[in-house]
Design a binder for these strands. Structure first.
Length: 419
RNA sequence: GUGGCCGUAGCUCAGUUUGGUUAGAGCGCCAGGUUGUGGCCCUGGAGGUCGGGGGUUCAAGUCCCCUCGGUCACCCCA
């Protein structure tokens, strides 16, 4: 083992794996860009209060916060998720509404790592502030759905729920509390004491004891006020219009406290590990106000890059593209390659070469491995005559031919079909 | 935070049960076979604090303790 390794729960993404990241992020950027979303780059750490304000009763904040004190005595935290940061940025700068943002950024949670779970993971996400229109909920969900489609995932489940709003949720919480208190002795130890704290969290508990109780618990979807019910109905019908299949999951409450109305989660059943959630989000109509802004509706999601790629592995799709050169310059004299690759690259051709005065045989080996279609060979004889030899490497049956150096770039481009 | 399993070459692993000369293999890498031509083949080479520390012993990769790391699971989440 080397003396220094990546810290616990973090990892390095190197080629060729990193090429999938490039493609995935590129697909997402293209998709949300076409939908009018703009990139937001916000700090990886915030005043710890930003996150405490929005999730004081959640595990993400109570147990998993990656926080520290800086040299100036400020209590900061690496962001555990993307939404709070983006909403804080909106509150601070107040760009005009609707504010449609996307990001590709790391998040941090201090947990024990396991399959599909890291202390630093990366999320693709969008956030929209300024509209309560249920069609927007559908648009946002469709953006996530579309990304899974882009990468070729065919088995993605969409779980959908509504958590109501300030009108109907209090009444529901009372009903839920009453029910849970009646069955308190049957709950798991942790949740026997958390009913008052945040009864919704009990619905999220996966322990058999709690599940046995919550299976028959009152459901928010049965307690929605007229407005929330109408909103939810429109989200469902809108998803239907787009051909997006969903399952209603009345116990889906998600890990953060700020959600209102629509919540959703994307799962990849192909993942056999415990973590099969590959994305999730929801509406948070009270969050901007909690962070000191005016009452402003909002909605967004986060998609875990690592988990999406794991799901792709499980389905055998979205393989790593191999980076290939178009041309490999084999230079016997060591005098020609520097300028030739520069000219080729400037002309838009992917050109590579060997360094270190390698033997011709070694250079050809590298040329072969580079994936190049042709090798450009120059030695003393060619330099004297002002030519290069262009040799096909992929067994296309073509002959090696001699090309004048001043015509080389055009010849290679024509041969490769590069515009 | 709790628990199971695992740490030997760049990678995948054998060797640990029953302690015993200079720790092996395949792949990869480098060179040569071909003084200017890749893939296939042949030959050779480089590369190891056996995760780290301590202990037992004439002797430790092998046994004991501690520790660090990896992995999987619980809880929760992307």
């Amino acid at each position: 083992m080397p003396e220094f390794q990546a810290p616990v729960g973090t990892r390095d993404v190197l080629p060729p794996e990193s090429a999938r990241w490039e493609r995935l992020i590129g697909l997402f950027a293209g998709r949300v860009g076409r939908a009018g979303y703009g990139l937001v780059v916000s700090p990886m750490f915030e005043d710890v209060g930003v996150f405490e304000r929005v999730g004081e009763a959640t595990d993400v904040v109570r147990k998993e916060m990656y926080d520290f004190e800086d040299k100036g005595g400020r209590h900061l935290a690496l962001r555990p998720e993307g939404t709070a940061s983006v909403v804080r940025a909106w509150v601070q700068h107040r760009p005009t509404l609707p504010f449609k943002a996307w990001y590709a950024a790391p998040s941090f949670r201090y947990e024990r790592p396991q399959a599909g779970r890291y202390r630093q993971h990366h999320q693709l996400g969008v956030e929209v502030l300024g509209s309560a229109d249920p069609d927007l909920d559908v648009e946002v969900i469709a953006l996530g759905w579309g990304l899974y489609d882009d990468v070729g995932l065919s088995r993605v489940r969409l779980l959908l729920n509504s958590l109501g709003d300030a009108t109907c949720r209090p009444g529901y919480l009372d009903a839920l509390k009453t029910y849970l208190l009646e069955h308190r002795d049957k709950l798991c130890d942790e949740h026997k004491t958390r009913i008052d704290d945040n009864p919704l969290r009990v619905l999220d508990c996966k322990r058999p004891a709690c599940v046995g109780v919550t299976e028959r618990a009152p459901r928010m979807v049965d307690h929605l006020c007229d407005e929330c019910a109408a909103h939810f109905d429109r989200v469902k019908s809108g998803l239907g219009e787009l051909g997006i299949a969903y399952d209603i999951e009345p116990r889906l409450v998600r890990g953060l406290d700020y959600y209102t109305r629509t919540t959703f989660e994307f799962q990849a059943p192909a993942l056999e590990s415990a973590q099969n959630g590959i994305g999730g989000g929801g509406r948070y109509d009270g969050l901007a106000e909690q962070l000191g802004g005016p009452p402003t509706p909002g909605i967004g999601f986060g998609i875990g890059i690592e988990r999406v790629l794991l799901a792709c592995d499980a389905e055998g799709v979205f393989a790593a593209p191999t980076a290939t050169a178009d041309v490999f310059v084999v230079d016997v004299t060591g005098e020609a390659a520097l300028k030739l690759v520069q000219e080729l690259r400037n002309a838009g051709v992917a050109a590579d070469r060997a360094f270190g005065g390698r033997s011709m045989k070694a250079q050809f080996k590298l040329a072969d491995r580079s994936g190049a279609q042709v090798a450009v060979v120059v030695g003393p004889d060619e330099l004297d005559r002002g030519i290069a030899k262009v040799r096909p490497l992929r067994g296309t049956g073509e002959e090696e031919e001699e090309v004048k150096l001043e015509e080389l770039v055009d010849h290679v481009k024509k041969r490769l079909g590069t515009p």
